[in-house]
Design a protein around this nucleic acid. Structure first.
Lengths: 203, 203
DNA sequence: CAGGCAGGTTAGCGGTCGTTAACCTGAAGG
DNA sequence: CCTTCAGGTTAACGACCGCTAACCTGCCTG
């Protein structure tokens, strides 16, 4: 059978370029003509695929938040399966690894994720915030299993701060001039664990 | 003599409100009429104080980068003075403390600092980037004094990541619902030190 | 008291931008 | 072969926005 699931399908092509442009110059800083030009069509042709410029941003942000959350849930469940369920430390490592993969592979989306949220319609913004909140709470629970005496507010602050740390990848040198992906991922992972440990240390 | 250095001087008032609005809705998302309204005058009255909207953003970003850098240099020098010069660990703590103070006191500026840089004229952008680079290099040097066996590229990445961690404060709950300023500062400080230690740990 | 100037005001211009309207075209289907 | 339709095109509209022009006004100063 010839089902080609890898077809980039124009729609996804548009979303990818739009994400890049929005991340580079901000939502209001990019015109629809530019987005069209980036995929080889021009201006209003985009309206055959999306209801409007807002709809592109909405689909991007909902998609990001959703994928982050479902990925985290999958990792949590996988850790719980198996004959010997993994300890909370392994689950935390898995969450960190997943977030790093995302931050390294989809830099533009990471940038958009906490930058253009306020440009959404109320309903979309609520949805995205809800997904984000669930993602955070999932992390908070795991962190508190690893460090049981860390109070919940401190754990939540720590999670947000570690997100800030992991999401700093867009600032880490433009092309591949830096120490290779694997090394960067390892460094970020170590720092995240170190930050959590220190958060739980003196409190 | 009657020199009142505390006069909020309209100009600073405008800058403060502009910073808040830019941080909330993005540079392109805010109109000059809104900025004017925020300080009680309306629209074009701003042009008595600034050459244009771009000039406000430029002054904000140059000001931030400059204050961060001069603050860090001052702390470095103060540590070197005195009969018993402070060790590198104390200097690093001082840098972290200064950055946290800034992040907690000027949230809108922190947000603008790495978000709207590309909206500047070439000359201003170069200046800001140069100031930022010097600030980063200053941190890198101090970090490498504390952890001498940490290679420079890793140290630079670690510094950027810690900035991401410290600059996450805008995401930490809107009003003062969270655990008080001092506790937040202490938590961030601990996490930053833990992250650096972990960065130097396995490499 | 005259004059200048700092610091406002409103009206309006010129450009840009998101969106719609109207039209075109090539490929698939009966 | 005719129709249909997905996926484009260009033209143009309406709104908005940054900025300028022209004018006003109270305060300081000689």
């Amino acid at each position: 059978m010839t089902t080609r699931t890898d077809a980039p399908s124009r729609r996804e092509q548009i979303l990818k370029e739009a994400a890049r442009l929005f991340a580079e110059r901000g939502f209001h800083g990019v015109g629809v003509d530019e987005i069209g030009a980036a995929v080889g069509i021009s201006g209003p042709g985009l309206y055959r695929h999306f209801a409007g410029k807002d709809a592109m941003l909405a689909e991007l942000l909902v998609g990001i938040s959703g994928r982050l959350l479902t990925g985290a849930r999958r990792r949590l469940k996988e850790a719980g399966d198996g004959a010997a369920p993994a300890g909370p430390e392994a689950v935390l490592d898995s969450l960190i690894e997943g977030h790093i993969d995302f931050a390294l592979d989809d830099r533009p989306l990471i940038t958009l994720h906490d930058r253009e949220l306020d440009r959404l319609r109320d309903s979309d913004r609520k949805l995205v915030r809800q997904l984000q909140r669930q993602y955070v709470e999932l992390w908070v629970q795991v962190v508190r299993e690893v460090y049981p005496h860390l109070p919940e507010p401190a754990a939540r602050s720590a999670v947000h701060s570690v997100f800030g740390l992991l999401n700093s990848t867009p600032h880490l040198a433009r092309p591949g001039a830096l120490p290779g992906r694997a090394d960067t991922a390892a460094l970020l992972h170590r720092m995240a664990r170190g930050a959590f440990a220190a958060a739980a240390g003196a409190e």
